[in-house]
Write a protein that binds this DNA or RNA. Structure first.
Lengths: 207, 207, 207, 207
DNA sequence: GATGAATGAGGATTCATTCAT
DNA sequence: TATGAATGAATCCTCATTCAT
């Protein structure tokens, strides 16, 4: 149902062969994150990227085949960062609900540090549809795995599954949009607690 | 879920004076929905739109000032449709939870009929950022109003508020993405029921 | 052996729909002949072509999809011109040898008027290999047909065929290069007579 | 037919000092023959050449000043090869016609072994126009000298001269194109015989 | 109103050549 | 000598928009 593996073949790409090359490539990726985050894919320009990176225009093509390719690299890198950050926030003995609270909290913090992530992931729907879909499917899968653990541990209702995973992901994404990107007018911990209360017992008065 | 976005000042636009003109204009709007939905804003072209509409390139500018303008018109039109549909699905005597279930169910059905809506609303983030933000803020506000009703009626916990509204909107949007746009491998009624159970009592085993 | 037909499908191309458009297109073709003849394909530029044609850069793309395409159109046009001119020079009652003399003479004259033809046909070997091959194969075929007539009429030896056709074409092309393109230091009529004497009786002293 | 083109001043070029260097240089020349023959001058790239040669990009400039220079070196090398081959095919006591037959036959064989020669010589028209012209003028001169010998020996008509030399060169080049490069569907000996019969007595039935 | 030709700013991309290691 | 990263000039092509008919 949900694709089971990371894309088999990362494009072989032009991998730098020296340390100096590796550094230049990274400068370009970082610059691209800023440029794309600020202007969006279509308004962004290679000149803008290399300008920010402090390299010559041509150097871009030493490391990337095209504007599309660096964008895709960026989407993947951001996805990896989210995954890493989320994983780091989890602790072995946590209950399923505590894990979701920690994951959301971490995501809210991460989004505040990397505001560009929303525009880049959102725009990947048009620039790199496969990467876009992959991003959300892998994220949903991670949530499902956590939920499955919770079910196995007896923390969660036994019928909890994919629908709940996508619902949780949607909650998280929109809470990030509202409280990390558009305004920081509420404490991430409070948001995470509130959302967690919803998950724990719903919103009904007579639970 | 996805509602009309009225940009502050609706420029009076070039209104057709004759019936023939009105028909030509509508043909262009319909063609634009297909073109934008299929290709996204930037890949779409005026030629593509007029080609589908069966009019000459120049005729486009008889009715619209720019590519941006027809895009915004389209967003507005789609928003109006959803608004109408959503309103029709609600019933006066419904409880707050029943209203949310009905709203989600209707949205899932609508999304299946108008798959282009996701791409168009999503892309408005880049084409008409103000409209994009406005769209979600107003939708969240509408949900908040329903929740407030529920609180007043004693159906919902008294601390339910903005965070829950955004969480619900996020759930709905992502459930639509997964189960209406990407695949129709589950029954909208079942999805709506499952999501509603989450809202009602959470996912914990010991509620 | 030698392909029997003109290429089935001339690319549909962007045909002008008005008289004005037809004129603009022709201005571009004429300008391209000069530009390509002067600079060669790779040094030539679209700006150079539109500059000579007196049109805007973008107008080029109203009529041609690419630099390659106009080049190919040109190769074809030149090939057609050669064919037309050669045909016009032939007369019904001519003997085979007289026909060859007339064809060579006409070609020498034509080459003097259209010196760009050599560079363009020659460069088509690299830009439009199919067109290049097609050009010489169709020319050889025409010569073969004339020779076959001559054989049938009893003017020529009965074993005359494809080898002789290619030999004659080669003679003509190189005589044109030497006496029409590089220098006009001899009279086309004299050249044609001399070459025709070779065809008639060879160069041996004891024929 | 295709002979060495010595551009007025052979720049001393970067001669390798060591045996290892000499070998690297030769690897580059060989690789260039393949690359240019396959892609033509403009489509060929230095990276393509060094890739085939198995050297680093930068090493190219240790041995050649530019892409043009290696191209010219290649033309010269090919020319030297043909010159050697042609000379070896001629014999002292041959009649003028026999010499032409032997020269054509040898050229047809050589072209089959070195199909790249056509593309490289042809493209020199654009890359090294002086060399191109020089090449054919010198080849024509060589044929003229052979013809002059034949006239002196009484083998050939006394009015045979430059026109016939260019005609013969053209025949040979186009027979090579047709029967060595494009297809090998006929025996070089047969071709040479047929062409020689034309030279000997023409194509007329009543010679 | 309808038509389609004309316009030109704007940007991605290539690749020969230079240079630091 | 060998290596491969860095450079940037050069140009093709797109397409929204304007305009003449």
């Amino acid at each position: 149902m949900i694709s089971a593996t990371e894309t088999a073949k990362d494009p072989p790409a032009k991998q730098p062969r020296t340390e100096r090359g590796r550094r230049t490539r990274q400068k370009l990726i970082d610059a691209a994150a800023v440029e794309f985050g600020e202007k969006g894919f279509h308004e962004a320009s290679i000149i803008g990227i290399t300008g920010r990176a402090g390299t010559a225009l041509g150097s871009f093509y030493t490391y990337f085949d095209s504007k599309d390719e660096i964008f895709r690299s960026l989407v993947k890198e951001l996805g990896d960062m989210v995954k890493t950050r989320a994983a780091a926030a989890l602790e072995p003995e946590q209950s399923a609900l505590e894990a979701e609270r920690a994951a959301l909290h971490e995501f809210l913090e991460f989004s505040r540090e990397h505001k560009e992530i929303y525009r880049i992931i959102d725009e990947s729907e048009f620039v790199d549809p496969q990467g876009y879909r992959h991003h959300y499917e892998r994220t949903a899968r991670r949530i499902m795995e956590r939920l499955a653990h919770g079910v196995a541990a007896g923390d969660l209702r036994s019928d909890v599954g994919e629908v709940e995973a996508w619902a949780i992901m949607g909650m998280n994404v929109f809470l990030g949009l509202r409280f990390s990107i558009w305004a920081e007018d509420a404490d991430p911990i409070g948001i995470a607690d509130t959302a967690n209360a919803l998950l724990k017992a719903g919103i009904s008065a007579h639970s």
